[in-house]
């Protein structure tokens, strides 16, 4: 893979960001995931959190702990040097894993924007479902809400603009499209994505040891289910 020179900058005095590119691509995101997984396996003492995004990785750190490693020097400068050395190393392709299969009911009673989506795209409901379920999506990042995965890229024909006025309340499990992204609302929340279906799966469950279904770098495939199957799923 071609190596992109990374831009490293301070995100305040307790966070640092490595940015590989100012555009969205799978190749760039592979570099993000590579570094993210590298630091999961080889953590830097004093780094308390990591935020992988489309084309960047942010590390949140405790400056007191980093300062000790920097022998009393600047925590930021020490980290920046360390990251520059690491990001210069050749990156490898992110390991592809089996996709997580997510059942989605595309019944209009659970998909308030589906009819509008057919008008915008010129696709029939059947075509739209076929296109949405035809691809395996990559989880590029999580954000916005606990467990909210930004997945891409949806087929060009069914890319939809965000709603002009966001909904005050979107039901948990709602599956939406915004531009080339698709995602599932893990919680009831306000939101502006076009809603084309709903999954009966719990995307975020506080009673579980791992409350989020998705992790950065996962692969996801949607599978159409009927309204009956949707309700049976919840009853089971």
């Amino acid at each position: 893979m071609k190596k992109t020179i990374a831009h490293i900058y301070a995100l305040g005095d307790q966070a640092i960001t490595i940015e590989w590119s100012s555009s969205i691509s799978e190749e760039v995101n592979n570099q993000v995931m590579h570094s993210f997984h590298f630091f999961q396996i080889h953590p830097i003492e004093g780094v308390t959190d990591m935020i992988p995004a489309y084309s960047s990785l942010t590390l949140i750190y405790n400056p007191t702990i980093i300062r000790k490693q920097a022998m009393g020097g600047s925590p930021f400068e020490w980290l920046k040097k360390k990251l520059a050395a690491l990001t210069a190393a050749p990156s490898i392709n992110a390991k592809e894993t089996e996709p997580i299969v997510v059942p989605v009911c595309y019944d209009t009673s659970l998909a308030p924007d589906l009819v509008e989506a057919t008008q915008i795209t010129g696709c029939s409901i059947e075509e739209l479902i076929a296109l949405h379920t035809s691809k395996i999506y990559k989880v590029y990042m999580l954000g916005f809400l606990p467990g909210f995965a930004y997945m891409a890229s949806v087929h060009q024909q069914i890319q939809l603009p965000r709603k002009a006025t966001p909904r005050k309340l979107v039901a948990a499990g709602s599956v939406g499209i915004a531009g080339e992204q698709t995602g599932i609302y893990p919680l009831e929340a306000p939101g502006g994505w076009q809603l084309i279906g709903q999954t009966p799966l719990k995307i975020f469950d506080i009673t579980k040891e791992e409350p989020c279904l998705f992790k950065p770098g996962n692969w996801v495939k949607f599978e159409a289910i009927t309204l009956e199957q949707f309700h049976q799923f919840n009853a089971a």
């Binding site: 995100l11 966070a15 960001t17 935020i51 995004a53 489309y54 084309s55 942010t58 954000g143």
Partner: peptide, 28 residues
């Protein structure tokens, strides 16, 4: 492109007004 934000980040909203993100901020 969406990326990480943190406690204390001053974001410029489309309205031209600013918000300082605090304890319950979104991660990106």
């Amino acid at each position: 492109i969406s990326s990480g934000v943190t406690n204390g980040t001053i974001q410029l909203l489309p309205s031209g007004q600013c918000i300082v993100l605090l304890a319950d901020h979104q991660t990106t």
